[in-house]
Nucleic acid binder design. Structure first.
Ligand SMILES: [Mn+2]
Ligand SMILES: [Mn+2]
Ligand SMILES: [Mn+2]
Ligand SMILES: [Mn+2]
Lengths: 242, 242
DNA sequence: ATATATTTTTAGATTAGTCTAAAATTTTGT
DNA sequence: ACAAAATTTTAGACTAATCTAAAAATATAT
């Protein structure tokens, strides 16, 4: 809620663009439920998983789930985990859209590295203004992917479907393009930077070491390097269609 | 507090760049105390004034003042009103800096009108990242004034001093430049837009009507128009030094 | 199948920020 | 100078989001 008096105005949390009030906290729960559901291919998300990802205790999550179910944002059968309703999913996708658009802004316009942006986007994703989101999207020239390769839901709340594979699942000598990462930690992203593994680069698995299961790669048809098995499992790629 | 786990992270309010925790709400109080103190030329701000500008009740303000005084952000003698301490002023100036930088962004980069930006900046001013503020400032080419003509405090927390006069205090036939507005309501700003009164335009008071005390102006040495006494009192100008 | 372990929910508290109503203090007007 | 009015503070209560501890439900393991 916003009210102007003379010079000033005071922004009182539990904002609204127009209609229903969804708190900062509720938005975070819905977003995390969406992302975890997606990661589990549509399976219910458990209370403990949510506690872990919200950095709270299971008891707090139970309370919040009761509340979100009351508002019809989630399907909730006690002890059975949750999924989002259509209404809940739309809120989640709106938050994810803003998060990813702001990440594009931070990298493309402000020159941040892809390892520095997530925590800032975590705040910006809650800014509540349809018009701002629309103008930001245009300013960025309607990007379809964020700096980590994640697809950006459109203004209607539709998430583009992507079909990436883990590099670890690609046959030897198959040329692929690096499309995304499934871990966003600064440490992992900086590790990739050091080896010049960036979004859009060409990769080919030449060998998998018998010694430590590490991956011997050819990068951009030029550079040979080894990455650990864990790195290979967290690189998302697509078979080159060239 | 921010913690990343795999894909996600969860932003828990009561944020920090590094050190002390200042809530969203506390930031708003400190900002409003700063602006009201400035408006009263350094005089104490009263509980009722704060209640009005925070859209809360005097009782709530009293509580918050006790808390802010405890944290040494304000000088508070019961019943006597408050002023900011150096620490409180630095927080207020940081918030105001971000508010005004974001307003520049919204107008210069996203093409918003000056009447549409305040409420969005009211949210953006709480985003907590020194690095973001620094890069935003550079991206905007280190603007010294926001779209309403208000000066932008520098990164060290120093507010540039400006010496504007109300148009209503300017002698007849004195050429002045329009430098700012002392009311930021969309209605007022749109009213100015309609008469093409913009920041930087030339103004000269040709007459003050005996009938209704309205001001007969010459705009940009070309256009003659009348504005109400209230408009004249809320236009901030500076004598042309050309 | 049943005891044990794990997960989830409930019960009861706590904190921040707000409220209304009542008490205390300051200001104003004669 | 003092009564009345206005302002400010205090007291007590409420809501959202969290917590710990205990109870209930579900899963697992012999
Ligand atoms: Mn992110
Ligand atoms: Mn991302
Ligand atoms: Mn503003
Ligand atoms: Mn402004």
């Amino acid at each position: 809620m916003l009210l102007a008096i003379g010079y000033f105005s005071y922004y009182r949390l539990s904002t609204v663009d127009n209609q229903l009030i969804t708190s900062f906290t509720e938005e975070n729960y819905l977003k995390i439920i969406y992302l975890l559901t997606e990661r589990h291919n549509g399976n219910e998300v458990s209370t403990n998983q949510l506690a872990e990802h919200t950095q709270t205790k299971a008891a707090s999550v139970s309370d919040m789930l009761r509340k979100l179910a009351e508002k019809n944002y989630i399907n909730y059968r006690k002890y059975q985990g949750v999924t989002l309703t259509e209404a809940g999913e739309q809120i989640a996708l709106g938050v994810i859209r803003k998060h990813r658009l702001w990440e594009v802004f931070l990298v493309e316009k402000l020159g941040f590295g892809w390892d520095e942006i997530h925590d800032i986007a975590e705040q910006l994703e809650h800014i509540d203004s349809k018009e701002l989101t629309k103008r930001l999207d245009d300013f960025l020239e309607n990007p379809k992917f964020d700096p980590h390769g994640d697809p950006i839901p459109d203004a209607k709340g539709k998430m583009p479907s992507v079909s990436y594979q883990k590099l670890s699942e690609i046959p030897l000598n198959q040329s692929v393009v690096m499309m995304g990462v499934s871990v966003h930690s600064p440490a992992f992203l900086q590790h990739l930077d050091k080896q010049q593994i960036t979004l859009g680069c060409d990769l080919k698995v030449l060998e998998i070491s018998d010694f430590d299961k590490s991956y011997g790669l050819l990068l951009n048809n030029k550079i040979r390097l080894f990455v650990s098995n864990e790195v290979a499992r967290n690189l998302l790629v697509q078979v080159s269609n060239a």
